[in-house]
Amino acid sequence: MPDQDGPQGELFAMNSGVNSGGFPLSPLEKSVMKAVAKTIELRPDDYMAHALGELAMDLARNITLGNRKGRAVANEAAQLASTLDQIKGDTSADDASKLPADVLEFAKALQSRPAQPPEVRHTA
């Protein structure tokens, strides 16, 4: 089977409009593809996001097929949500300006080492 990724590592479904099984994309797969594509567009060199994007697409397909067959898909849905969170990454940590000044000072103090070690007193 030929390599499914394009030269820039785009998701297979983005280029073909079908999933890896050759079937047309379900509405869930289309939504997942849009979400993943946006992240990949913002971070084109993040190959972990590319790999997780393919995993998310496969999970979306499994959920679609499971729903059609009347199977429980809660585990796959939870895994898909977790995978999408991993792809998105932690965007809130980059913007510390929204934190109060005292919280920022406390966080900075926790990250620094004390000027001198505390005195240890033995009471025996």
Rank of each mutant, 00 (worst) to 15 (best):
53 G>A: 06
61 R>N: 03
85 D>L: 09
98 K>E: 12
96 A>Y: 08
97 S>D: 13
22 G>W: 07
70 G>E: 04
39 T>G: 15
103 V>C: 01
89 G>E: 03
95 D>A: 05
32 V>C: 07
101 A>W: 11
77 A>D: 12
64 T>P: 05
50 H>E: 06
103 V>S: 05
15 N>R: 14
79 Q>D: 09
20 S>F: 06
103 V>E: 10
32 V>G: 11
38 K>M: 11
30 K>W: 01
75 N>S: 09
82 S>F: 00
79 Q>K: 15
44 P>Y: 04
62 N>T: 14
54 E>F: 00
93 A>K: 12
104 L>R: 15
21 G>H: 01
56 A>K: 02
39 T>S: 13
72 A>C: 12
97 S>T: 14
102 D>Q: 06
44 P>W: 00
74 A>K: 14
29 E>T: 01
12 F>R: 02
64 T>I: 12
77 A>T: 15
58 D>W: 01
52 L>Y: 11
57 M>G: 03
58 D>Q: 04
73 V>M: 02
28 L>M: 12
89 G>D: 04
47 Y>Q: 13
71 R>C: 05
105 E>Q: 14
20 S>W: 04
104 L>A: 14
93 A>D: 07
12 F>G: 01
38 K>R: 14
71 R>G: 14
106 F>I: 08
87 I>V: 01
48 M>P: 08
23 F>M: 14
